[in-house]
Structure formats: C-alpha cells, structure tokens
C-alpha cells in the first residue's frame, strides 16, 4: 500500500513518518509512537476517550486520519505535564477524587484543557457543556466538574 510522508509535532517534538492513508491519528499515537495514554473506546467519536489537542483544538483522534495531521501540532495527555510538574488540572483531578477507573481521564483532561484555554473562567454549566463529548461511566461527572472549577477559580491546594 502506498505510503505518504507525514511531518508533525507531538508534545513539542518534531516527528516524521511514512504512513498509509487509512491510518488514524489514534493509531499513529498509540501503535507507532506508543503514546498509550490516549484511549479508544468507541472508534466513532461518541465517547471522547481519544481526545487530543490538534493545533490547540480538541479533536477525537479516532476520527482524524494521521495524514490529516500533517503540519499540525498535537498534544496528548503525556504532553500535559510530567510527574514532577503536574498540570493544575492533573493536580485537581487527584485532589478532588475525579479519577476512578481512569480510562476516560486522559480524554477528560484534554477536553478540560481546551475548555480552560478558551474560557478561563467557565461557569459550572459551561464546564458541563465543555465535557459533553466525553463519557464517563464511573464518576457521574460531579468530581470531574469540581476539579475543573477548582482550577478555574484558582482554588488548588498546594
């Protein structure tokens, strides 16, 4: 099968690949780059588990062809913050008990980041709307919303 050149930036580093046209972005990240924090749960953009940022916008990486990310900048959960320098959202998720099984967590974090990047002071309803594309089956969303609100209001415990 024909391969096509793909240049992109992932979590701040430049990469070059030769990819087939039908490779999805989620497969590139997970299978070729071993960035396994990005999860897949439906493959059809219905659950948000595979959410990453593409040029600053949240996208379902199962509905983007890898080749479509040519020239783009991708941020995954691995690029959000490291163990030594957690992103405030990661801290808040831990502090507020927003993590249960953890499978939706990376996608939730990326959607939350997109929300706060574009609306640093969202209301609780705006947070709900910002997470509407991310399903969670464990938490009932309450503590995830609490965590995001805490970051927005600068109420993180140090």
């Amino acid at each position: 099968m024909a391969k096509y050149p793909l240049d992109l930036v992932v979590n701040g580093s430049k990469y070059h690949f030769e990819v087939e046209a039908d490779l999805r972005l989620v497969d590139l990240l997970r299978e070729q780059m071993k960035l396994l924090g990005t999860k897949e749960s439906c493959g059809k953009g219905e659950c948000g588990a595979c959410t990453v940022l593409m040029d600053g916008k949240s996208v379902a990486s199962c509905l983007v062809l890898a080749i479509q990310a040519n020239g783009s900048e991708i941020v995954t959960v691995e690029g959000l913050g490291g163990e030594e320098a957690l992103h405030p959202l990661q801290q808040a998720f831990i502090q507020h008990g927003a993590v249960q099984c953890g499978f939706c967590t990376p996608g939730m974090l990326m959607s939350a980041k997109y929300l706060l990047d574009n609306n640093p002071r969202p209301t609780r309803e705006e947070i709900r709307a910002g997470l509407a594309g991310n399903l969670c089956r464990c938490t009932g969303y309450v503590k995830i919303i609490d965590a995001i609100q805490a970051v927005a209001e600068g109420r993180l415990e140090q």
């Binding site: 948000g48 959410t51 593409m54 949240s58 996208v59 983007v64 959607s111 929300l115 910002g130």
Partner: peptide
C-alpha cells in the same frame, strides 16, 4: 452538533 471534538472537525 455532537460535542466540542466533533464541532472542531
């Protein structure tokens, strides 16, 4: 339409 991820694409 959909959620933010769908609307962004």
């Amino acid at each position: 339409v959909g959620g933010p991820q769908i609307r962004n694409r």
